[in-house]
């Protein structure tokens, strides 16, 4: 993807450099311990899959990383610098963008308006009102779509007319366009069909090649294994460990994620179909 002309895209990080490091991250909500000491390192140019069943603490972790929650305790470093985010805006400013599963796009708004929502290019201002440079915005939106491989008839068409996979891709493209170095993708494929999923996974792989760090949250181990370089498994607010792809098999991942025994048992009962 070539850099577009208006916005200086954040300098591409060198591959292999640590973008995010968290050590012993703890988050309490009153008496509830949502995270009980999570550690994780995300390098540039890797897809780091975060796996875990419901209630494992995935959402709390990503919301902490994306600035929605403040951690109760623990170290949180971005590119080697200690940070403390007060809002998602702070995280965005440090190049950490989160694409949520269902909250990514507004169906009734046009593609262009969605793409630039919150960061509209300004043509001129009158008092408190900044006028949007709509022509320019349309042009960029169309070009970005084309680069992902989505043919839009008209960037003014409503996002509701796009498929689920296309919407995810547009949301991701938006984050990248606005200079994200770290992408946190929250279950980007969970609501998608096979063709749509492969479209998203292909795009994720393409972005990894560009040197972005991607945290990919899912509970579909297959999707994770298809694109992941490393896998961190969360269980009951703790990390069960981080594994390179070469160190672990798909089956083993599946079992660890489900908290071992029970699923293993069930798997045997069902003849290996889970």
């Amino acid at each position: 993807m070539t850099a577009t002309d208006i916005r200086p895209i954040a300098p591409t990080p060198q591959p292999g450099r640590a973008l995010i490091e968290v050590h012993n991250l703890v988050k309490h909500f009153g008496p509830v311990i949502a995270l009980a000491g999570v550690s994780l390192t995300l390098h540039a140019g890797e897809v780091h899959c975060l796996l875990g069943d419901n209630g494992a603490g995935k959402s709390t972790l990503i919301k902490t990383l994306s600035g929605v929650f403040r951690p109760t305790n623990g170290d949180f470093m971005v590119e080697g610098e200690q940070v403390s985010f007060g809002s998602p805006r702070d995280a965005l400013d440090r190049g950490i963008a989160t694409v949520y599963q269902d909250l990514a796009m507004i169906p009734l708004l046009s593609i262009t308006r969605n793409f630039f929502l919150g960061r509209e290019p300004v043509k001129w201002r009158v008092g408190p009102f900044s006028f949007i440079d709509m022509e320019h915005a349309d042009q960029i939106a169309r070009e970005e779509m084309r680069q992902i491989g989505i043919n839009v008839r008209d960037p003014q068409q409503h996002v509701g007319t796009l498929s689920g996979g296309e919407r995810q891709c547009v949301a991701i493209a938006r984050a990248v366009h606005f200079g994200a170095k770290v992408l946190i993708l929250d279950e980007p494929t969970s609501a998608l069909g096979v063709a749509q999923t492969s479209m998203v996974l292909k795009y994720v792989r393409q972005l990894r090649q560009k040197g972005l760090g991607i945290i990919f949250i899912t509970h579909n181990v297959r999707h994770a294994y298809a694109v992941g370089d490393r896998f961190t498994i969360l269980n009951r607010g703790k990390t069960l460990g981080t594994f390179k792809k070469s160190e672990i098999t798909l089956d083993r991942l599946q079992i660890m994620m489900a908290g071992d025994k029970e699923l293993q048992q069930l798997d045997e009962e069902l003849g290996g179909t889970v």
Partner: peptide, 24 residues
């Protein structure tokens, strides 16, 4: 129809959470 505030109005009404997530 022409200003950022207008876009934010559409965004806030279309999906307040999604709009918040992108900084509106």
């Amino acid at each position: 129809t022409k200003t950022r505030v207008g876009n934010w109005i559409f965004g806030a009404g279309g999906d307040a959470n999604a709009a918040r997530n992108v900084g509106v």
